[in-house]
Design a protein around this nucleic acid. Structure first.
Lengths: 253, 253
DNA sequence: GAGTGGTCTAGACCACCCG
DNA sequence: GGGTGGTCTAGACCACTCG
């Protein structure tokens, strides 16, 4: 009888071959819940892939796929010839994902209020045209909002979408969902975004909107969202109060 | 005879089964060079996986692995039941990697100069101890530098490494390589970093070092580097002149 | 219905690590 | 040398897309 819990769990009995969920996903989530439950020590070795495959009643390629996903997430790591091991927990992950500010922030019971300043169709200025691969003066939908957190003005969002991509979008409510999520609901396959972050001084307009002194440091974000085929579909220009906002990201070797 | 170049290239003859490079890597790089050469139009369909496998003379699972890598990079995208397609080029990728500032910036013939302000062993203050999972006052190696680009002071780096991890590191030259690269050379398996970015006003010290006015906007970066097993091995506190520096990152859905 | 990608099998051989 | 992960095969069946 091993002292770890690994070999004692009748893994294979938990798999369901008839439902819609693939085996490698079921196995991955089974392993993840084992890891999250905290039963396993940092650095502890998992059973070999052969053995896990036998326990789950699947082929080794299938269990490898499950493990690979968890390795990509940083929960496990492999050493060729040695084994698969449990990484230290609590390393923050999953910054580098497109997420909805409201899903993540409001879930923490933070009070977010959105004031719509403009929702209109305007000709693209050069910066916007460049980001969205349009000609200058082509029409774009502009959504301009001021966001308050706990009553404190925190960010000014200026978001642009090519009008000709889908004129019907002009009728959507962009206040509580980022543009990419509105596009997703409309059937577009949103895949990735590239953003650039700078520290900039507040000009007179932003100082007034954000209730800070002129030249106060703002965190400026320039984000372009792309579909899976690489089409740019939205540009977000975002000015955040420097003292109220931070961006996190994960870098891989 | 198809009108595309895909079927006309004798792929399999280019593979080398005896050298050290795995087949899926050879196939991936062959496909990548085809894509980079620009012969293929955005949205063009690739041959089916079955056919590519036949052309390369490998099994379908092998060619799938190659394609999956390119899909992860954003060069291709798959549609279940429809095919694999070429994504739009020129989407910037591969931010989110740990890279050496000098490899990337000096390669562009930018003149970077590093002035060592301190290299010493000090007791960890609370911020440092928290980031590196140490007790306060445990000894850490501190590397404090001022960086000039084209003669203009651009960034102040303050980097910390647990002294007890490897006391010999104190003798290393940290000026032209980030700490994580020094650690890598010493045999440590560097895996990931988590960084937080803020906009902050320059205090008197940073204003003097960076030759800006007090309260000028700085881009502040707090970065912790982790080994593959999750051990934190370095903390970087970095203050960049806001008007001279930007951070880019890619977000995935 | 034909073509495609998504999943899965039951093996195999190799390179690498460690005691 | 025994155990491990890395790669690869030659199939198979399914789910999905599209004309």
């Amino acid at each position: 009888m091993p002292e770890t819990g690994w070999a004692t769990v009748p893994f294979m009995s938990t798999l369901n071959k008839t439902e819609g969920v693939s085996l490698y996903v079921q196995i991955r989530e089974t392993l993840r819940s084992q890891l999250n439950s905290g039963d396993f020590e940092t650095g502890q070795k998992l059973p070999a892939e052969d053995e896990l495959a036998a326990q789950f009643g699947v082929s080794r390629m299938t269990v490898r796929r499950s493990i690979s996903d968890l390795v990509d997430e940083g929960l496990l790591y492999r050493r060729h010839g040695a084994g698969t091991f449990v990484a230290q927990p609590h390393v923050e992950r999953d910054h580098n994902r497109l997420t909805n500010f409201f899903d993540t922030e409001q879930a923490r019971e933070i009070d977010v209020e959105v004031q719509l300043l403009h929702q209109e169709v305007v000709p693209a200025r050069l910066l916007v045209a460049n980001a969205l691969a349009l000609q200058e003066t082509e029409p774009v939908i502009r959504i301009h909002t001021l966001r308050r957190v706990d009553g404190i003005p925190t960010a000014v969002y200026d978001e642009y979408i090519p009008y000709l991509l889908d004129p019907g979008l002009l009728q959507e409510d962009f206040r509580y969902r980022p543009a990419w999520q509105v596009l997703e609901s409309a059937g577009y396959k949103v895949k990735r975004a590239v953003q650039k972050i700078e520290a900039r001084p507040a000009d007179e307009t932003f100082a007034r909107l954000l209730d800070v002194e002129e030249d106060a440091p703002l965190l400026y974000k320039h984000r372009v969202v792309y579909l899976e085929d690489g089409t740019p579909v939205s540009l977000l220009l975002c000015h955040n109060r420097g003292d109220k906002y931070a961006v996190k990201m994960t870098l891989l070797r």
